[in-house]
């Protein structure tokens, strides 16, 4: 029996904070508070445990271990004091899956209208996975996919189905 294309694993214990602000003005203060470089357009920066993703021209997503959430929220509020900004804890609104394995790209290619050959490491792509919103980027060994908490079962199901053994996209 052939191997599955990739492991699909739900990841728990991550906090996510949405930051909306004028990045041109508040970027430096944010970078200092978070300790990560502000990502370029559609980029994601990381130090291994925390990541900072570019979501839109005035929105960033900070992903970090749950234990660091409250401190980060505090630091962000401080850094943005006096700025027109919005900081919101979204940790409970999201579902995270890691798709890892030699054919992880094939799994995503069955669900998202995205040219994965051109998805460089450090790029965060917002799109959809079949019928639900999703964003993904490369991690060592595969891709990390985030979606909504309410459709986590659906997202997990379509990812696992797409990873079934023997269904790789290489021509047969």
């Amino acid at each position: 029996m052939a191997e599955i294309l990739a492991q699909v694993a739900r990841i728990e214990g991550l906090a996510m904070i949405t930051i909306r602000a004028g990045l041109a003005r508040a970027g430096d203060a944010l970078a200092e508070a978070i300790g990560l470089a502000i990502p370029d357009r559609t980029g994601i920066t990381t130090d291994g445990t925390r990541s900072l993703g570019w979501m839109s021209p005035d929105e960033l997503l900070l992903i970090l271990p749950e234990a660091d959430r409250d401190e980060a929220l505090q630091l962000l509020e401080q850094a943005l004091a006096g700025e027109h900004a919005l900081v919101a804890d979204m940790s409970d609104a999201r579902a995270v899956f890691d798709v890892t394995g030699p054919h992880a790209d094939d799994v995503i290619a069955k669900l998202s209208p995205v040219d994965l050959a051109h998805l460089a490491p450090g790029t965060l792509r917002r799109s959809r996975a079949a019928q639900t919103a999703a964003a993904f980027w490369r991690i060592p060994g595969g891709l990390r996919v985030i979606g909504f908490r309410s459709t986590a079962d659906y997202l997990g199901l379509i990812l696992s189905e797409a990873a079934r053994p023997g269904t790789g996209l290489a021509p047969r």
């Binding site: 069955k110 079949a130 459709t151 079962d153 659906y154 997202l155 379509i158 189905e161």
Partner: peptide, 15 residues
Amino acid sequence: AEARGEAFQPLRKTP
């Protein structure tokens, strides 16, 4: 394609 049975459409579920 995959949109059948359980995956016919996303069902949103509360916690």
